[in-house]
């Protein structure tokens, strides 16, 4: 089976400081991988390199494109990469306002990605937007409201709808439930789980919340000081961590 994403030896430094280094892995279709680690461990830098928001100093991020097979997205031209990030890729930001247009209605936010790939039929765009709002449990009556009138949890769900409307194959998520209160988190996690299953999505989720990865991720990568210290099945890494740092990380979680 061809991996959907094949990452080879990614390195990103900030001057003499290492952002992340020696990162390689393959992600297969339908797999959800979590990246955990403390603040400053390099997980967000890595995600930015993978999603094309940062240019790595070295290494390759090969993506299995629909028409040409595995292509290194680091070497891709910018238009191609931007096209990819509007179609086959999606990026869910921690703060919904980074991923939404706050001055545009909910329907317009969802519709933008469709219009960006050439949809020019208002009625179709709108009905797809409404359909997606319903899938993320936002009432159709809110379709013309601006996201600034939404609660934090709704904004995050709207951001997810906006990202998934073009049927991407790979979703990057940066702390998707960070900043939401616990009851809202649970609802969002359940929603994400259902969408991942129904759409056969592959995803890379960066988080410091081990409960989030336990529920969403098939496999886990533990990072410390810019390096990957342990990888494996999510429950294996969490229940039987091998590396010193993973053990510390797991044992540091407060049990409720």
């Amino acid at each position: 089976m061809t991996p959907l994403l094949s990452v080879k030896d990614i390195r990103k430094t900030y001057g003499s400081h290492i952002g992340c280094t020696d990162v390689s892995f393959d992600l297969y279709p339908g797999e959800v991988m979590g990246i955990v680690g403390e603040s400053g461990s390099g997980k967000s830098t890595l995600l930015s390199c993978l999603a094309g928001h940062l240019e790595p100093d070295q290494g390759a991020v090969n993506f299995d494109t629909r028409d040409r097979g595995l292509i290194d997205t680091v070497q891709m031209s910018e238009p191609e990469r931007r096209m990819l990030s509007r179609t086959d890729w999606a990026f869910v930001h921690q703060h919904a306002r980074d991923g939404l247009r706050m001055g545009v209605s909910a329907g317009g936010n969802v519709g933008e990605r469709l219009m960006a790939v050439g949809d020019r039929h208002y009625g179709d765009i709108r009905s797809k937007a409404v359909d997606w709002l319903e899938r993320v449990e936002i009432s159709e009556t809110r379709v013309d409201d601006r996201p600034s009138t939404f609660s934090g949890g709704m904004q995050q769900r709207l951001q997810i709808a906006r990202n998934l409307v073009t049927g991407p194959r790979l979703v990057f998520m940066d702390e998707p439930t960070g900043g939401l209160d616990v009851s809202v988190q649970a609802r969002l996690l359940d929603l994400l789980r259902g969408l991942v299953r129904d759409m056969g999505l592959s995803a890379i989720i960066v988080t410091h919340d081990l409960a989030v990865v336990r529920l969403l991720a098939d496999r886990l990568m533990v990072m410390k000081s810019g390096r990957v210290v342990e990888t494996g099945l999510t429950d294996q890494v969490l229940d039987d961590p091998q590396h010193e740092y993973s053990q510390l990380l797991v044992s540091s979680v407060l049990q409720v």
Binding site: V104, S105, G108, G111, M115, V117, I125
Partner: peptide
């Protein structure tokens, strides 16, 4: 795509 967002709105 953004230009059409304005018309959509």
């Amino acid at each position: 795509g953004l230009m059409h967002v304005k018309l959509y709105e």
